[in-house]
């Protein structure tokens, strides 16, 4: 009985993976027998759909194919920490289009928000990126596949340790992590082409602005634990001038159509 279900599920996953491979990008890392591949393919499809619907707000109808490809390979379920769920519900939760609690009042962000924030950073293979608030470790894992080096700082020791274990188990070698106060950034690791501040911030620490290279970008999600209300993008131009850009992750016009 159990064997029958297993075979059935593997078969279904196999078909979906094949379809996904054909339709999408055909990432090499994707193993035929990865039980999560189908769920990840669905997740990518949902992200693409959100990106299209929010295009007018974010200014981009498609997210970078490299980011989609990377998110297709990163095992999000491995970053859910000490979750007591059994594998199947865990996987469904991990790849669902929603944030998931990881303990300590923190969440692993919704896949679309992770994708959008990564896209706003405009990562390049030679970039060095700083992350303030490692949390689950998932954002760093996604960045790891896109840039040269990720430096990440977490305040809560337990979270930092769990994330570090997940990175080493999954073989993310270009992530440097430490536990501590993110306010002063990580001068020794920088300067940075991109900075993600996922920790709640009442203001943007000046040392972070200083450690951003000219032409660099910083992304800050604003909102509560379960809802990202807006994203703040800080850009430093080649002359060192700083501007911010505020984006809603959603296409919403505050005025009724046709109004003054």
């Amino acid at each position: 009985m159990t064997g029958g279900i297993m075979t059935n599920r593997t078969l279904k996953a196999g078909v979906l993976v094949t379809v996904a491979l054909g339709l999408c990008w055909g990432p090499q890392a994707l193993a035929q027998d990865d039980p999560f591949a189908a769920l990840r393919a669905d997740m990518i499809e949902t992200i693409a759909e959100h990106a299209r619907s929010a295009a007018s707000a974010t200014g981009r109808a498609h997210l970078s194919p490299q980011i989609m490809e990377t998110m297709h390979t990163v095992p999000r379920h491995a970053f859910l920490g000490r979750n007591t769920l059994s594998p199947r519900p865990l996987a469904q939760l991990a790849y669902a289009d929603r944030p998931v609690p990881i303990g300590h009042g923190q969440t692993i962000s919704q896949p679309f928000i992770v994708a959008l924030m990564t896209d706003l950073l405009a990562p390049e293979p030679d970039h060095v990126v700083l992350e303030i608030g490692s949390g689950s470790g998932y954002q760093a894992a996604v960045l790891s596949g896109l840039v040269d080096k990720v430096c990440t700082i977490e305040i809560i020791p337990e979270l930092g340790k769990t994330a570090a274990k997940a990175w080493s188990r999954q073989g993310y070698a270009n992530i440097e992590a430490r536990i501590g106060d993110g306010y002063y950034g990580w001068e020794a690791c920088g300067p940075f082409d991109g900075i993600v501040v996922t920790a709640a911030a009442g203001h943007i620490p000046p040392p972070l602005v200083r450690q951003l290279k000219p032409g660099g970008r910083m992304v800050i999600p604003v909102g509560g634990a379960f809802v990202t209300q807006q994203l703040v993008l800080v850009e430093k131009d080649s002359a060192g001038q700083v501007t911010t850009r505020q984006l809603l992750p959603v296409a919403f016009v505050p005025l009724v159509r046709g109004a003054p």
Partner: peptide, 17 residues
């Protein structure tokens, strides 16, 4: 260990902690 540094709306150009 990690001070509050509460100052909502602080300008990006502020340099005083």
């Amino acid at each position: 260990t990690v001070p509050f540094r509460h100052a909502p709306g602080l300008s990006l150009l502020n340099q005083t902690e």
